[in-house]
Design a protein around this nucleic acid. Structure first.
Lengths: 403, 403
DNA sequence: GACACCCCGGTAAGCGCTTACCGCTTTCCG
DNA sequence: CGGAAAGCGGTAAGCGCTTACCGGGGTGTC
């Protein structure tokens, strides 16, 4: 439609109408300008124009007091005389007054908004993607956000979620912009590099998720090492698998690295074999997992007895690829994930995985951010949450969820 | 340590950090109210305290111009002299300045934030709920929000999502509060009643989703009638089913009503039988769908040849309940949904349903809201988007998705 | 009864930014 | 070369709200 991209171009019509305020008690809000006959006909043209919301001045006038009193009543300061309070409260109710967020924020220097930066999951999708629907289910970051939102709501905060494209020229800039609309930032993994984080951290409180803490930021993550250790032992000792391979997430992902190391340690200790890692590089997506399997099978490589994936998404891709090639899971090859995202239990072959307390991760991250916003000094820079091994079919265990 | 919680108390160390910048403009921001600073030492305990972000005054000082010039350069007004522009731009870059959202919002009266009110899906969950995982997948409202977010981002807007509990004492109040943090509201179905909407609409631009337009609000929805008509015809004519029943959503849901009416019309026209509606009342949830089936079967009632559900969630519950009772789908009974939410195609028995262009619904809603915020008068108060019939297994068609 | 306090309302000073308006330079013509 | 018209930068007035500070009246106390 309107093709002009010049965002500010228009001189935004704003018919300096504030004068309309009118007499004192004018509570009646004289609805629309419309004439009598105009009625409520759905077709009517300009009827949608909204009248400006009342300001604290309107309330003060209606209550016959000063704006300071209104503010005091509303914020419970210096308890006002009952009569004053009542007058104000009534005026507030009549006018339906609620203080403007921006004005309040500017004044108290607190916006009560937390910014959340997430790696864009939903734009610029590739329509031909085999796993297009993988973006249709709630993923790890989405679940975290729910936790964040819950915790935020408890403190009266709202969250502003912004997804940034990784190959964006200036993630820092857009990010900072979000920062200035909020009191602090919650940054998901892999959207900003350490330098940018460091820099951001200097300007606003920042909490990262599943990353690493920097001197100025706090990080919240799950206990990858312990989780993977449990999983590895289950595979090695309970099932007795002797050859295992690991499909990593992004090569520089702290989570993926930690998981790999824990796995490697266990495999070594059990005297089993961990296949060469190089050709087993995934990218946390189902597509990536499938790709790895496909290329290996096409090349005729032998598969290990168990494939440990960096996350559930990858495992989903792996399962799919294996099935297409006629490889049975868990009969021929066992497959495991990590995260325990919702779909993990809806798959044909229910996925054995390591559950992270995802929502709690988010909630905790918010709590930490909140305390930072209040200038408290967090006890730790690296908050670690426990994990749980979830045994389902894909590793060779019987049945599905106990539930 | 510096345990004072008094937010402003400290005279905010404001380490003239930018000094690193070196010679050049050397004015190096002798920022505000002087401040002996606690350096940037990393390890230190209180090190997490962030220094306040630079203000436009800092930039002006650093560039040796007035704040007006800074603002003009940044907003591209009245093109400033190249030299001025450069000085400002450099200062901005050095200080990493980004205008404060609240201040800007207050000044231009535009927050660039759209509020989204959704019926709470994730709090106060009932842990014993049979279908607990139904909240774990992306549902209709979530998908809509993605569409909204996409469209919003294109206009430089962010979205503030707030979930309200239906049985909350004062949804209007919390809602209005959100409204004052944003420029307009996008209200999902069934969170506010018409009166509240009407009232809200008087204060801020409001767009509802899948509801009905009021004189002051615009509504965006899918073409329920057409979608259901296609589905009904498929069931009646392609499959030849002669007895059908409809499990509604909430009894007063406009969507559910519209779907029912379209179905009833088709059934009547085909001379088939539509079972009595009364004992077939669902509530848009899987639990509700299952409950209906269970109570009917327990009572020994005969089932119709096809069960048409108001939405996919309901259908999922129905499928589950039927399976538990040993009723085969689609063999004994055909079941259909509406919406085509992601899980619909992951079910054991893939669900035949009517696809709504969910994201587009959201995107459109935002576009409309955006135009209202800009005081444009929308062409219609009732925006309708097309639907598509998706034939999968559950209605008796062969195979699953073509894909 | 006078003075010291308290209480509680009002006044006004910002919060950080945009922009109308003013006035000094430059530039352009006649 | 003078005067009008631009061009540009600065000053200041808000945007709507919170809160420090001030002052008037009511109490309490010798």
């Amino acid at each position: 439609m309107d093709a002009d991209t010049t965002v500010n171009a228009d001189s935004t019509a704003r018919p300096a109408a504030p004068t309309q305020a009118g007499p004192a008690g004018a509570v009646t809000a004289a609805p629309r300008p419309a004439g009598p006959a105009a009625a409520i006909t759905a077709a009517a043209p300009g009827a949608l124009a909204v009248s400006q919301p009342p300001t604290i001045y309107d309330v003060a006038r209606a209550a016959g007091v000063s704006i300071a009193s209104v503010s005091r009543v509303l914020n419970g300061r210096r308890n006002p005389r009952p009569e004053t309070r009542d007058r104000v409260l009534q005026a507030v109710a009549e006018l339906g007054f609620v203080p403007d967020g921006a004005a309040r924020a500017l004044s108290v220097r607190l916006k009560e908004v937390a910014g959340v930066i997430i790696r864009l999951p939903w734009t610029s999708r590739n329509p031909e993607d085999l796993f297009a629907d993988e973006e249709d289910s709630l993923q790890f970051p989405d679940m975290i956000n729910r936790g964040v939102a819950e915790a935020a709501q408890r403190k009266g905060f709202d969250i502003l979620v912004r997804s940034v494209d990784l190959d964006e020229h200036d993630p820092g800039g857009r990010t900072l912009a979000l920062a200035r609309k909020s009191d602090g930032l919650l940054v998901h993994d892999r959207v900003l590099d350490p330098d940018q984080l460091e820099w951001l951290g200097r300007q606003v409180p920042v909490v990262t998720l599943a990353a690493v803490a920097t001197p100025l930021t706090v990080n919240v993550r799950s206990d990858n090492a312990a989780g993977m250790r449990d999983l590895a032992r289950h595979l090695l000792h309970d099932h007795g698998y002797r050859t295992i391979s690991y499909i990593g997430g992004h090569i520089d992902s702290p989570d993926s690295i930690a998981r790999f190391e824990a796995l490697a340690a266990e495999v070594a200790e059990a005297g089993a074999t961990l296949l060469d890692r190089s050709c087993w590089q995934g990218d946390y997506t189902a597509g990536g997992g499938a790709r790895v399997i496909n290329s290996l099978l096409d090349r005729g490589t032998d598969l290990p007895r168990a494939i440990v994936c960096a996350n559930d998404q990858t495992a989903i891709g792996v399962l799919y690829a294996l099935e297409r090639h006629g490889v049975r899971v868990p009969g021929d090859v066992a497959v495991t994930g990590f995260d325990d995202i919702p779909v993990a239990r809806h798959l044909q072959t229910q996925l054995t995985t390591v559950r992270q307390r995802i929502r709690e991760l988010g909630a905790t991250a918010f709590e930490v951010l909140y305390s930072m916003i209040n200038r408290e000094t967090p006890a730790t820079r690296d908050v670690v949450l426990p994990t749980t091994l979830i045994r389902r079919r894909s590793c060779g265990c019987e049945g599905g969820d106990p539930s």
